[in-house]
Design a protein around this nucleic acid. Structure first.
Lengths: 125, 125
DNA sequence: AAAAGTTGATAACTCTAAATATCAACTATC
DNA sequence: GATAGTTGATATTTAGAGTTATCAACTTTT
């Protein structure tokens, strides 16, 4: 448990994260714009990445550079994850869930007003 | 039932299929090489496409041109389809199934020796 | 058996997705 | 308050995926 808390703690500013990943800052911001990652932000609206974020980004990087999967492909793959099976949300929740039927975007890019998922955090590699 | 048989009947030679899809013959052959489609072949090893093949290819075409999903992305998406849930194959079958664990290629690009799937035909859009 | 269409393989081309560079305005740090 | 780093937005570059062209050998059709 200790461990899980630690890897999720936001510590790296964008420049450091970029350096650790071997990519540029604009690229990192672009991944966020595409909805592939959602880092923590400071009160002043600056991004801070956790160790878990970096791991997720390494996974994305591998998909792009090695597996030759396009960003839209990754988005679609993420959107195929049936998060409702993981979360076991209610029938009622599903009816108002925007993510339940789309395959264009990962579930976490949608808003989940008034559902079990409101503050959840999904992922997969 | 009649209908299903009809759409699966191979009728179009490659040139016709290419024209109907608005793409070139080499492209069509490339999709096959990538494992996205497996058309019927004549005794003389020439491809013949069914109406169902064309529909599948239109789906692939949309994924590439409109959704901007790379071919490797499509392959991965196809490989994520849990065919074993559709087919309800046995535990024994799964143990010898090459497709059961990989996410690099669609299940139908693997050989299925001595399993329920031996002569099956999967798809999704 | 001649004409039209096919095969697989290789080489060449064309786009455009992905990455980067650059900017003025803002935030953090010392 | 000055230096370093950030933000979002736009413009530019580039690497290579996707497509097409071309080939001699083969198949189909008439």
């Amino acid at each position: 448990m200790e461990n899980i808390v630690e890897v999720k703690t936001p510590i790296y500013p964008i420049r450091t994260a970029a350096k650790l990943l071997g990519i540029s800052v604009p690229t990192l911001r672009m991944y966020e714009k595409e909805g592939l990652i959602i880092p923590h932000k400071t009160d002043g609206n600056q991004r801070i990445y956790s160790e878990a974020d970096l791991e997720r980004l390494r996974c994305i990087r591998r998909a792009i550079s090695e597996s030759k999967i396009s960003i839209n492909g990754i988005k679609t793959i993420y959107s195929l994850i049936p998060c409702w099976e993981v979360v076991k949300c209610s029938e009622g929740d599903r009816k108002v869930c925007n993510a339940f039927q789309s395959h264009e975007q990962p579930c976490w890019t949608f808003t989940h007003p008034n559902t079990t998922c409101e503050n959840r955090d999904c992922k997969e590699c």
